[in-house]
Write a protein that binds this DNA or RNA. Sequence first.
DNA 1: CTTGACCTTCCCCCAACTGGAAGGCTCATA
DNA 2: TATGAGCCTTCCAGTTGGGGGAAGGTCAAG
Lengths: 129, 129
Amino acid sequence: MNIGEISRETGLTAKTIRYYESIGLIPPADRKANGYRAYAPNDVATLKFISRARTLGFSLDEVRGLLTLWHDKARASADVKAMALEHIAGIEDRIQELEQVKNTLVHLTERCHGDDRPECPILEDLAGS
Amino acid sequence: MNIGEISRETGLTAKTIRYYESIGLIPPADRKANGYRAYAPNDVATLKFISRARTLGFSLDEVRGLLTLWHDKARASADVKAMALEHIAGIEDRIQELEQVKNTLVHLTERCHGDDRPECPILEDLAGS
DNA sequence: CTTGACCTTCCCCCAACTGGAAGGCTCATA
DNA sequence: TATGAGCCTTCCAGTTGGGGGAAGGTCAAG
């Protein structure tokens, strides 16, 4: 299996897969006689695992930890759960921040006429008036 | 006014202020005889404007546009409002995404015992079981 | 024999800074 | 006068998670 094929199967670009290898997130792929990377069906599962974890917002460093736990058959599910809960907390913080920013902007836009006159409460607020 | 003083007044680090100058977000500061940057009280207002816009999540490129509008006394408030509304839409999208990710993670953690046994629905889901 | 689709490595680019090195300036104090 | 603290200067590199594209090797089809 060439990198292009596993790329299509996993939805990750070839660039991304090479990048994951370069930072040691996945082990160096075997090489064919011509120097091409050779992937096994097993590698599809690993890359999909990574892809899903990324979709859930885990950083590559966190993914590294998840991969370790995944391969550790003696792991404690508490460790995984702790990571997930911490991640949820971070997401909640981020949502809070965004909500606050959004509310401020909504208030400002409501007070802005939005016509061809220059008076603008949004700019006035940014200017600290 | 040295860069350190305007830094304390605006809450932006000296590094950041130099960076803003380097990318042309603010004009090059005047220099004193010793080569130090010299700031006027007026510059405090500009930097605070930038800082507030950043707090509201505008990118530096958007801030550039806001600064232009701010200085343009013939601006139409509709232009500012359009930027703000678009920004709000982007924030709402981001919140939606985060909510979805959070919900998924919450569901998964609820099904995970979180004890010293290895069975873990979180990892199973990532593995695509 | 050539064409096109692969693959390889390499280095630069993005945002929005931050950290640190190496050096110059200024002022107070011993 | 020296020295030390605390400013300031420029420049280079690193962060996250890759993307773009060059220069070149490989492979199968026509």
